[in-house]
Amino acid sequence: MTRSILPVLTVVTVILAIWYAACIPVNAQWTRDQAARAGVELTLRDIVADTLGQQRPRLPAPHQVAQELWASTWVEETQGRRGIVNTGTLSNRSLIFHGWVTLSATLLGFAMGTAMGLVLAIGIVHNRAMDRSVMPWAIASQTIPILALAPMIIVVLNAVGITGLIPKAIIAAYLSFFPVVVGMVKGLRAPDAMQLDLLRTYNASGPETLLKLRLPASMPYLFASLKIGIAASLVGIIVAELPTGAVSGLGARLLAGSYFGQTLQIWSALFAAAIVAASLVGLVGLVQRITLRRMGMAT
């Protein structure tokens, strides 16, 4: 653990340095234009200072994003007029509120997608007809750009009276079922002929074979799939929140930010999404480690 800290810190430092360096040329144009309008001469030092502290930079500096993140989470909730401290409910201007909206939909969509993926994979492994027919459709489903599909799903479901969490979750499930199907088909087929023959000599039934051999053997594959699936689910939710006039969720914050040219809001929402994604993948990894250790398969 401690041995990996130094490399990680190095990489982070390099990224921050590149980021800061990039801010200067990207934002310098605006600084020069302002100076020209005001008729003042700028030294290099002035330009650097200004490009890293603009109100609406093209590319916000890391510390600005950090400040914005802090301000739109802790500060907003504790001190804001609409924060949880003053009103008892989360502020609709805080990233905690929007993050939770996205997270809850992500989890629901992930659960739906995983369940669907598992059912399909079990079907494919046990049923010849499904084996030949389902996979091409599953692959085809993923070749359609979700960006094109999401608004249609939302509109159609709204038309039949389904609104709120469910349409978003369906889009997330649409993305997250696929890695589960692919991984679990491989995982459920992981047992070799000998392990299957052994159960045959016990005259084990299909469900017993699934429960006692195929499912345990597929666990490493399952977790690899779940990690991809939960990240895909989050992407699905954010995409679903983008174009549909949603007023809450990290996707809505992204859209509102770009609509009003609020780069800081965009970047802080992006980072919030990245933090949520990393936490979710980390959580799956933790469950994986605990599960595999309890199965005696920890590496």
């Binding site: 000998m194 023959d197 000599t201 051999l213 053997a217 666990m219 199965m295 005696g296 398969m297």
Partner: peptide
């Protein structure tokens, strides 16, 4: 279940 079969490899399930 008239017979027990011992395969060439032990084939124990690693998770058990």
């Amino acid at each position: 279940r008239a017979y027990g079969y011992v395969f060439q490899a032990a084939g124990l399930y690693p998770w058990r």
